[in-house]
């Protein structure tokens, strides 16, 4: 479980997050939706223990989220994080040394699933394959929390499809919490249990995806257009 308790994060005078309180439970896939600069990445970094709240606290499985929480949280950044001279297999070995819960057999299975060749140099990978490799590294861990920051951005439909299928195949639905931060909701809506809309550092709406359709006959896109009307 993840809990935000009156969390504020300031960068200088700017608010990254502004007095936010909510909790997320395991066994669900959440979409964190909002425009650029709304607080999506700040939220994920707080959960990953990479930045600290200015006030309030973030708890992951009852523990304060700090550097040590990396043992329980797998974080796929939107940035390109690979060490260029490495081969894919070096990257796998490196991850295995960094995270106790990294499963090499699982990583190999995922590489096959994503049709990635272990012997390839990172430098030679296409953007799509780098996106796939990032997901392999995140999913090969048995972490209770999986954070994906813009996993689809700039990737073509084939790659997006393989990422969605990879997620559905390898997520542990009994035990994991998955949070996907994105502004490209369109294709992943059927993947989500709930959506949280974030703007100017505030959660301005939260819904179960199916309830939204049942109660109001709205898809998430339509709901977002209303919610982010300003």
């Amino acid at each position: 479980m993840i809990e935000f308790q009156n969390v504020t994060k300031k960068y200088g005078r700017e608010y990254g997050l502004n007095d936010v309180t909510y909790s997320l439970e395991k066994g669900k896939i959440y979409g964190l939706l909002g425009p650029n600069g709304s607080g999506k990445s700040t939220t994920l970094k707080l959960i990953a223990g990479l930045v600290h709240p200015t006030s309030g606290q973030v708890l992951v499985n009852g523990k304060l989220a700090n550097r040590k929480i990396a043992n329980e949280v797998a974080y796929l950044t939107e940035l390109d994080m690979f060490y260029q001279p490495f081969k894919i297999k070096d990257m796998i070995d490196f991850y295995a040394t960094q995270f106790q819960d990294f499963r090499i057999d699982r990583a190999n299975e995922l590489l096959q699933f994503m049709k990635l060749d272990k012997e390839k140099n990172i430098k030679q990978l296409s953007k799509g394959n780098r996106g796939r490799l990032k997901l392999v590294l995140a999913l090969a861990r048995e972490a209770s929390v999986l954070l994906l920051d813009e996993p689809f951005s700039g990737l073509d439909p084939m790659v997006r499809d393989s990422i969605v299928k990879g997620l559905l195949s390898y997520i542990d639905f009994d035990n994991q919490i998955v949070i996907i931060a994105t502004h490209e909701i369109d294709e992943i809506e059927p993947l989500l249990d709930e959506v949280l809309a974030i703007q100017d550092g505030k959660i301005i709406g939260r819904h179960n995806v199916e309830e939204l359709r049942e109660m109001e006959g709205l898809s998430i896109i339509e709901w977002m257009k209303r919610t982010f009307k300003e």
Binding site: R213, E214, S219
Partner: peptide, 13 residues
């Protein structure tokens, strides 16, 4: 990507 769903009806239905 998978299939298209109508907006007005729950996906499960």
């Amino acid at each position: 990507m998978g299939e298209e769903f109508q907006a007005s009806k729950p996906i499960y239905m």
